[in-house]
């Protein structure tokens, strides 16, 4: 009969591990599809990325961040590792996922007091690597061209033999991707490892929304904004709906919509704030792709809304029930 006990005397079942497990499960369809499209090298890249994320994160959390003991091993590292690997092409040397993991660990531990992160931990490395290793990150090979999973650096001639231009690069050049939008939706296209698996990513999204791990409104708003803007302002003489769908099914749009825009660490937790982020992100992606030179505007758009999120969370904070308007200003 210890008086130290106090309410609540029961706790809910779901813990941090189950949250991470749900995200991991949501990634499995995309991972499986990527392995089918790009071969076993995808598994090697993902394993290296995940392993390095865990290995580098532990000392940072223990000696630099000085996290509590229970927090030293973060189950989300598995998710971040795979997602950062998803942003790499299959032809990268095997040191690339390790560098990406290093950047992931840097971004995930770069946080405000209270746990809010400044940047998304898997979009940040993708953006940085796109800037620093532009050529390597934009070398895509055709689907079903399988490379040696254990070759540290692939033979340049071999890669060149299978090299193709991704749909996103074609769009950026102003040309039309001839295979249509259905292969892109299914994921039979070239591109970054995980980004091509649009349908599989959306399948994972269903799991997340069923498990209430995401905000379907933000995901839908982001996709709808891009589609609507592309439909209303098509590129030159492109067919409107074709152009709109092309934009939706290329690049990291699906991954951003499902995972990056549901990352509470780096986005506002208020419903309105999240919605504003999704809309701003969608507008930035559209404007970037239409007028910008670089093809990976999705990453920069996410980082931009990440930077805005503390302000958005503050101004969209809901009014407590029973309060007058004045109370909110406190």
């Amino acid at each position: 009969m210890s008086p130290a006990y106090r309410a609540p005397f029961v706790k809910s079942y779901g813990g941090v591990f189950s949250h991470a497990a749900d995200l991991f499960i949501a990634l499995i369809p995309a991972l499986m599809w990527s392995v089918y499209i790009f071969g076993a090298r995808v598994i090697t890249i993902c394993v290296i990325s995940v392993a390095f994320t865990f290995l580098l994160d532990y000392p940072v959390r223990r000696w630099i961040v000085r996290a509590p003991r229970a927090d030293l091993i973060d189950p989300f590292n598995a998710v971040y590792g795979i997602l950062s690997a998803f942003m790499l092409p299959v032809s990268v040397p095997l040191w690339a996922p390790a560098v990406s993991a290093l950047l992931t660990v840097f971004a995930k531990n770069l946080a405000y007091p209270g746990g809010r992160r400044i940047f998304n931990p898997y979009i940040f490395p993708a953006a940085v690597m796109n800037i620093v290793f532009g050529e390597m990150m934009s070398t895509f090979t055709r689907p079903l061209a399988y490379f040696n999973p254990f070759s540290f650096v692939l033979d340049e001639k071999l890669v060149a033999a299978y090299r193709v231009i991704s749909p996103l690069q074609q769009s950026a050049d102003g040309s039309v991707y001839e295979n249509g939008v259905v292969p892109r939706f299914i994921g039979y296209a070239s591109g970054h490892i995980g980004e091509v698996a649009v349908a599989a990513t959306l399948l994972g999204a269903v799991w997340l929304f069923v498990r209430k791990r995401g905000d379907i409104k933000a995901t839908f708003a982001f996709l709808a904004v891009i589609f609507a803007l592309a439909y209303l302002f098509p590129s030159d003489d492109a067919e409107t709906s074709y152009y709109a769908f092309s934009l939706l099914f290329t690049g990291a749009i699906a991954l951003i919509a499902v995972f990056a825009l549901n990352d509470g660490y780096s986005l506002p937790l208020t419903g309105t704030g999240r919605l504003i982020c999704a809309i701003v992100c969608g507008v930035c992606v559209f404007l970037g792709r239409k007028f910008g030179g670089d093809t990976e505007w999705g990453y920069y758009a996410v980082l931009a809304v990440n930077a805005l999120s503390p302000v958005l969370e503050k101004i969209t904070r809901p009014r407590p029930f029973g309060s007058s308007g004045k109370a909110r200003k406190k």
């Binding site: 005397f9 949250h19 229970a70 791990r213």
Partner: peptide, 15 residues
């Protein structure tokens, strides 16, 4: 009721 305890971790900002 036997009071339940959950190991304390950092906020995961799940909302």
């Amino acid at each position: 009721v036997t009071p339940q305890k959950k190991p304390r971790r950092g906020c995961v900002r799940c909302g």
